[in-house]
Amino acid sequence: MGSHRRPAATGLDRSARTATVTVLSAATAAAAFAVPASAAPKDTPAATKAKVDRLYEQAEQATEAYNKADERAGTLRRQVERAQDKVARGQERINEMRGEIGTLAEAQYRSGGIDPSLALMLSSDPDAYLDKASALDRISSRQSSHLTELQRAQRALAQERAEAGRTLAELEKSRKTVARHKRVVEDKLAKARRLLNTLTAAQREEYDRASRSGGGGREAPRPDPSDAGAGAGAPASSRAAAAIAAARSAVGKPYVWGANGPSGFDCSGLTQWSYAQAGVGLPRTSQAQRHAGRQVPLSQAQPGDLVTYRGDASHVGMYVGNGQVVHAPYPGATVRYDPVNMMPGATVTRV
């Protein structure tokens, strides 16, 4: 009877099985402890805060682009209104001219119903007829002049209508640009809010207290308003003093993107509104505000000067003295005081 025992494994077979078991065990262990490629490690609070800062910076840049596009749309809207009003007045004038020409034509028809030479022969009062004929010539001359003027007015009206149409088309394009920038801002802010929601309440409170760029977790001290001209130079002008007073009155108001007061502000909206209270018109965007006056070194800043930040001038505040600016920092924060060197690339503009 044959044996059913399996043949003894050779040394080579045992080695192969052992190697296979070892490889499989290692692979199983590696799989048990491996982190999926799609699962990134959880950010530290510091990394989350840094991401929020970047998103707020990008949102601020998009906000300034939105403000610029919105300002452009407002300008175009006013141009369209003026053009439409001009077209309406031009059409009214043409209607009046047509009425005058119709009256002249009717008078000419009534006076010139027969051949002038025959009318003269049949006239019982040749002198009176000649007077009428002379008047008729004047009427014809006036009619010709009116027709020429009407043609010119019609050509001008056609040009004005075409220009109004082009401006209206440009306005519609600008409105789409505004809407696109608005979506970008809202997307950035939504991402920032989601990231902030991953922090604990204490970490969010610390973030709210800190300046966005290196506040060290401490809320910037609010300077005594009476110190604005003490040890830091007086305001550059009476209008600068009035603008400072307006900006101070806004402290505590919420940051609202795209807003320029009086209940909420974005950064350039605050400075524009503050100087408007002093009777000074500033451009809407921080980039344009950087060039709204004479630039001076930071070491020579005086209260009321505008301070723009970063190479693209995407943020702006107002210097109030003692190394402080008042500004609208970012969504979720309120208008407040912060150190003038809170962000890189500070440029000072004296309005």
Rank of each mutant, 00 (worst) to 15 (best):
T285L: 01
S274Y: 11
P283S: 12
S299I: 07
S274V: 08
D305W: 02
G304Y: 04
G281I: 10
Q300R: 10
Q287L: 13
A288V: 05
T285S: 09
P297H: 10
A276S: 15
Q287M: 12
Q295I: 06
R310L: 12
Q302E: 11
W273Q: 00
V280A: 14
L306V: 03
T285W: 01
A276E: 15
V307M: 07
Q289V: 01
A301H: 03
Y275F: 14
V280W: 11
A292G: 02
D305Y: 03
D305V: 00
Q287P: 02
Q277E: 12
R294W: 07
A292L: 04
A278I: 05
A276G: 10
P297L: 09
R284D: 00
V307G: 04
Q302G: 11
Q277R: 13
Q277K: 12
R290E: 13
R290V: 08
R284E: 02
Q277H: 09
G293W: 02
G279D: 09
L282S: 00
Y309P: 03
P303S: 13
S274G: 11
R294T: 15
R310C: 07
V296S: 02
S274A: 15
Q295D: 10
T308R: 02
G293P: 05
D305L: 00
A278F: 12
A292Q: 05
W273R: 01
A276Q: 14
H291I: 12
S286D: 14
G281S: 15
G304R: 03
R284T: 02
P283D: 12
A278W: 10
Q287G: 09
Q277L: 08
Q289Y: 04
R294D: 15
T285Q: 05
Q300I: 07
Y275V: 01
G304I: 02
G279N: 09
Q302L: 14
R294I: 13
W273I: 02
P297Q: 10
S286P: 00
A301W: 00
H291D: 15
R284V: 01
Y309F: 15
A278N: 09
